[in-house]
C-alpha cells in the first residue's frame, strides 16, 4: 500500500503545517475522521489520552513542543525523529519511526485531530 509517496510529499508536508491557520469549520468532523487514524498509527505509542509512556515516549496532550513547533508536526510524523527532545521539561530519547503510509490528506486530518483533541491549538 505504498502508493502516492516519496516525490512531492516532503514539499507538500512543508506547506501543510499544523498551525491554527485552519479553524476547522467542523471540529466534530475533524475529531471523528482523525480518531481512526490516530488509533491505527499513533495510539500504541502515544496512548489513549495522548499521555505518552513514562520517560520514553512524550505526551501529545498539552505538549509545549507542539505549541512551539506547529509546523514541524507533519514533518516528524512523515520522517520520524531520532535523538533526544524536550517536551514539557522532560527529556525523551527513544526514536519515533517515520510513517510513509499516510497520505497527505490523512496527515492533515491527523494534525487537526491532535490540535483539537489534545489542546495544542494555541491561545
Amino acid at each position: 500500500m505504498k502508493k502516492r509517496i516519496s516525490f512531492f510529499v516532503p514539499l507538500l508536508v512543508g506547506l501543510l503545517g499544523c498551525g491554527d491557520s485552519q479553524p476547522g469549520p467542523d471540529q466534530m468532523q475533524a475529531l471523528a475522521s482523525g480518531y481512526g487514524l490516530y488509533e491505527t498509527h499513533c495510539l500504541n505509542c502515544h496512548g489513549q489520552e495522548g499521555e505518552g509512556l513514562a520517560n520514553l515516549i512524550p505526551p501529545l496532550k498539552n505538549s509545549d513542543w507542539i505549541l512551539q513547533h506547529p509546523d514541524s508536526v507533519p514533518y516528524i510524523i512523515r520522517h520520524g525523529k531520532q535523538g533526544p527532545m524536550l517536551v514539557n521539561g522532560k527529556r525523551y530519547s527513544l526514536a519515533m519511526p517515520a510513517n510513509k503510509i499516510l497520505t497527505n490528506e490523512e496527515l492533515q486530518m491527523l494534525c487537526n485531530y491532535i490540535r483539537i483533541r489534545f489542546g495544542n491549538a494555541g491561545k
Binding site: 500504541n44 505509542c45 496512548g47 509512556l53 513514562a54 520514553l56 515516549i57 527513544l94 526514536a95 519511526p97
Partner: peptide, 16 residues
C-alpha cells in the same frame, strides 16, 4: 524490542 512500532509500547504501559 525497543524499536517496536506496534504493540510493545502498549504492553509496556500495561506492564508498568
Amino acid at each position: 524490542f525497543v524499536t517496536c512500532p506496534t504493540i510493545c509500547p502498549r504492553m509496556k504501559r500495561n506492564l508498568l
